[in-house]
Simulated scan of single mutants.
Amino acid sequence: MIIGGRAHDFGKLPVAQLAAKVSKQGYSYIQLALSKAIYGIDCSLGKLSPGLGNYIRDSFKKENVQIAVLGCYINGIHPDIQKRRADIDRFKEHIRFARDFGCSIVGTETGTLKVDGLSDYDNESESAFETLIESLKEITCEAEKFGVIVGIEGGKNEVVSTPQRMRRVLDLIPSNNLQVIYDPTNYISILNFKDQNDLIKDAFNLFGDRMVVLHAKDFVVCNDKINIVAAGMGNLNYELILKQLKKRKPFINILLEDIKEVDMDRSIKFIEQLYNRV
């Protein structure tokens, strides 16, 4: 099993301190969102360079930790065109220097129109979807130039709200440089949680061959709401998920997320033990 996590789940720390803390936890791989995880270095647009990438990569390498995903969370459908433009430019910069961080994947969520109090905007609209495709085509074109993978992660509150919409994205952008970061919990809502097995099967049938990373967290239902908990501490059918991964994507990176440090050991053991049984 190749289990890791998100670096910013340890807080925002200086590079050396963060790398040591991640290694002590037992992670061999991380998803590193520079602006969320690293303290003391300005990683804003225009500041990345091969030297900075090498420094951060080597700091983690000294602790035997590899950067599996360079996280660059952008909103590809932001209703403010200037903010959307800045996000796209920042993502393209991450693509250009990803290899210097020892990484081949730059990851993002797919975005939402419901920002800055604009709650009436419809993520399910065709115009929102078309805006996403326009943004993804641009960043995927950049990724093709630099031999880097764009990893996109959908979810129920985003423009790519279902496995079917994810499949549609992949069909409209037929590039092998566009792949999927799959988080099963992201698609779970109070309306469909009882049908989670079908959702999981749909995801693997529709884009199982395009998954490059699994994000691992869990959910419980409380007071008619979905609450996020650490992997193995809720109701997500991990047995079904791990069976599919074992068959379709052996040795894929499984990255824990939305998890407190106190729960990390327990979640790691849960996934490792279940994976060995299925």
Rank of each mutant, 00 (worst) to 15 (best):
G208W: 01
K249W: 01
I2H: 13
L191C: 06
D122N: 09
N186Q: 09
G208A: 02
P163C: 11
F97N: 10
F270I: 00
I133N: 02
I252V: 10
E142N: 14
I30D: 06
A20E: 06
Y121H: 09
N177A: 13
R99W: 06
K145M: 03
S119R: 15
S127A: 13
Q273A: 08
Q179V: 08
A203G: 05
K269I: 05
R168Q: 13
I200N: 09
K92H: 03
R168V: 01
K145A: 02
A7F: 08
K21P: 01
N64M: 05
F91A: 03
S189F: 09
L214I: 14
K194A: 04
A216R: 02
L113P: 00
N192Y: 15
N276E: 11
Y73H: 15
N186L: 02
K36I: 01
S267M: 08
N123S: 05
R99N: 13
M233N: 14
V106C: 13
C103P: 08
Q31N: 10
I95G: 00
N197D: 15
V278K: 10
V115T: 08
D209F: 04
L256V: 01
D209P: 01
G26Q: 06
L178V: 04
T185C: 15
M264A: 10
I271N: 05
I188E: 07
K269E: 13
T140M: 05
F219S: 08
T110L: 00
Q17R: 08
R210T: 02
I3A: 01
N253Y: 10
E109H: 15
L113C: 00
R57P: 01
K249R: 14
Q82K: 12
A230E: 08
R210F: 05
R84Y: 01
N177Q: 14
I271F: 12
